[in-house]
Design a protein around this nucleic acid. Structure first.
Ligand code: SF4
Ligand code: SF4
Lengths: 142, 142
DNA sequence: TCTATATAAGACTAAAAACATCTTATATGT
DNA sequence: ACATATAAGATGTTTTTAGTCTTATATAGA
């Protein structure tokens, strides 16, 4: 697992939208500026979020992005994995066939357990809760 | 966090030594061949393990590596962090100053919790247990 | 309809990190 | 002395990440 910048930026984007509420349209420009993400980079990330069904993208003048679902239903895990793919702490967790005999390896089992635990923790965090308690200067009003 | 190949190789090396027991000298050549690690790469990794006080390196003819401590005292976490540095799932976990206001960020708190949990899980795994139960073809006798 | 403004999509580039090898030096047993 | 082993770090290759640029398309409003 490795949270790339793209992953971190994706989280910031969804968090910013969550603070504004489900369905509220926010321009890419505003999101990019408030979350300190390069606008063109945000565009690519937004496309991944859109493909994952997390946000909707509106083109044209006064276009922008908006959350498709209730922030309470959107988990940190879903956003992260929409950007960087399924979390895998070691190669053999996601692709057991990558190591000759992962079936018998005790280290492999530790990684599997740790991976499962990590994903569970990230799944418990929803954006309604994250946004409600958040006072981070990056995304807070005004 | 990202388990690099170097990290994975370091674990394999210590596991192979643990199977042979504390203090038992094993040549780099044998370790490299049995764990399928490029010999020169293993040399660099071994140096990191030695600096961390996990193994001892003996030079000269019939040289090699050996575990300094009881495998039961060596944790997966210690070995990993000797190679890749302290585990940090997101940049702001290890370096809070890298983000403007991590003190107020709720996402930051989730990362901190997940990071702590992960390190705890990896600390619970010791190499005596790992080696005893292990039947992986990479390292098992003969 | 025309124009200004917005994003779509993917090509392209630069920088960084990962992965590995090579070279020269040093240590040790015979 | 010599064969064999690792030390240490320079060097090189490949892959990934991070970011930018270009051309196309969609929409609101004059
Ligand atoms: S040796 Fe075990 S932990 Fe390492 S890659 Fe293979 S299965 Fe995974
Ligand atoms: S916004 Fe929060 S989670 Fe993201 S880098 Fe900053 S402190 Fe960390």
């Amino acid at each position: 697992m490795r949270l790339t910048r793209a992953g971190e930026y994706g989280i910031r984007c969804v968090r910013h939208l969550a603070i504004h509420g489900q369905g509220k349209l926010v321009s890419r420009k505003e999101i990019a500026s408030r979350t300190e993400v390069p606008p063109h980079f945000l565009a690519k990330i937004a496309q991944q979020l859109a493909r994952a069904g997390i946000i909707e993208i509106l083109q044209g003048a006064n276009g922008g992005y908006r959350l498709l679902n209730d922030p309470a239903k959107i988990t940190l895990l879903a956003v992260i994995e929409a950007i960087i793919g399924e979390i895998s702490l070691n190669d053999c967790v996601g692709r057991p066939e990558s190591c000759r005999d992962s079936a018998l390896c005790t280290v492999h089992r530790v990684w599997n357990k740790a991976n499962q635990q990590l994903r569970a923790t990230l799944q418990e965090a929803d954006f309604a809760t994250l946004a409600r308690e958040d006072a981070c200067c990056l995304t807070s009003f005004p």
